[in-house]
């Protein structure tokens, strides 16, 4: 069978589908001071998984606000800088009007994912941290 670390090199998704892969990628991103990119990506996935119903309405609103505040509000943050202005104002509108939709972070997540696929992920595969691991 293919060792996990070789599968990590196939695609970003195969890396993010493995706990050890995530940990190593996160260590690398932390060194580059951009671990927020990965945390935001997972936060978006986790948010989408929360089903809208009466019992968790308050939690979803609180969480949407927390994600917005931590990653999007500060225009100098690593995540915020990679998200298009239109996408940011869409999310801001959703939060302000309390229109909390499971898909409200999807576009932002796609933009961050594309950035990782084109930039941090290929750099990671050439990094000492990955090569030493293999």
């Amino acid at each position: 069978p293919t060792p996990p670390y070789l599968r990590w090199a196939e695609s970003l998704h195969s890396l993010l589908d493995d706990q050890d892969g995530i940990n190593l990628f996160r260590t690398f991103l932390k060194q580059e001071e951009c671990a927020d990119l990965l945390d935001f990506w997972f936060a978006c996935s986790g948010f989408r998984k929360l089903e809208p119903n009466e019992s968790n309405e308050e939690k979803r609103l609180k969480l949407a606000k927390a994600i917005y505040k931590k990653y999007i509000l500060d225009n100098n943050g690593i995540v915020s800088r990679q998200i298009k202005p239109a996408t940011k104002s869409f999310i801001k509108d959703c939060v302000m009007k309390q229109q909390i939709d499971p898909a409200m972070f999807d576009q932002a997540q796609t933009e961050i994912q594309r950035m990782m696929e084109e930039n941090t992920y290929p750099v990671f595969l050439k990094s000492d941290i990955y090569l030493e691991y293999t």
């Binding site: 993010l16 589908d17 493995d18 706990q19 995530i22 945390d39 997972f42 936060a43 978006c44 996935s45 986790g46 948010f47 998984k49 929360l50 939690k59 609180k62 969480l63 606000k65 927390a66 994600i67 505040k69 931590k70």
Partner: peptide, 20 residues
Amino acid sequence: IDSEDDLLQECITSAMPKKK
């Protein structure tokens, strides 16, 4: 009551794959 950070951390963890 969960603090915002706890809520966020719980959300991030919930999206990660479980250990195989």
